Simulated scan of single mutants.
Amino acid sequence: MSNKSNADLILEAIKDLHNQEQIVTRETLSQLTNLKLSIIDDRLSYLVDSGYIVRVQRGVFVPAPKHRPARLMSKTLLPDGTVKIDIGDDQILTLTPREARTLGNLMVAEAMQYANIEMGHHMAILQSEVSGQVRKLKRQVEGLVGKGTQGELLYEHD
């Protein structure tokens, strides 16, 4: 008898089926693991929520891609234009100026993706700040209107 939890059993079955290029469905998992569909459904929800698997379309699942942790990286530009790239504890590349430009050209898509992600993060922060300021102004306006001030609020109409 196995000491594996139902979630571990299902995750292992998903990985095995995926590695065999088989479509992973709840019915396939039920047949393979001999677990009831209600248990399969519950554990699939848990595995999706936990980030272990991805629902690629309704009822079809694949293992979530896992990458090793990112290592520290550095680039050193030498006076003669040579570029040294270090990743982790290893010196990986020593590039001539032309090779460095070519590598940069090859990596431009990743650089643009990085820039877009960073811009999205900054826009989310700005949007949050603006929303907070709008809420504060709304409360102030409601407070003025609620006090029944003697002055009138003027609105411009275009």
Rank of each mutant, 00 (worst) to 15 (best):
N3C: 05
K4V: 05
K4G: 03
L9G: 03
I10M: 02
I10T: 02
L11M: 06
E12G: 09
E12F: 02
A13K: 11
K15R: 13
D16S: 13
H18F: 15
R26M: 08
R26C: 06
E27L: 07
T28I: 14
L32G: 04
L35M: 11
L35K: 08
L35R: 12
L35C: 02
S38I: 05
D41W: 01
D42S: 09
R43G: 00
L47D: 01
S50K: 09
G51Q: 04
Y52H: 12
I53F: 01
R55Q: 15
R58S: 14
V60W: 02
F61D: 03
F61S: 05
F61P: 01
A64F: 05
A64R: 09
A64H: 04
P65I: 14
K66G: 02
R68F: 02
P69Y: 04
L72Y: 15
M73F: 11
S74R: 12
S74Y: 06
K75F: 06
T76D: 10
T76A: 10
P79N: 06
P79K: 09
G81H: 01
V83L: 10
K84Q: 11
K84T: 06
I87Q: 04
D89K: 11
P97K: 00
R101F: 10
R101W: 08
L103P: 05
G104R: 02
N105G: 09
V108Y: 04
V108L: 13
A109Y: 07
A111I: 10
Y114K: 08
E118T: 14
G120V: 00
H121R: 12
H122G: 05
H122R: 14
M123W: 15
A124Q: 15
E129V: 08
E129Q: 15
V130K: 14
Q133M: 13
Q133S: 12
K136P: 01
L137W: 11
L137D: 12
Q140H: 09
Q140I: 10
V141W: 04
E142I: 07
L144T: 07
G146T: 04
G146P: 03
Q150Y: 11
G151R: 07
L154R: 07
Y155N: 08
E156P: 01
H157F: 12
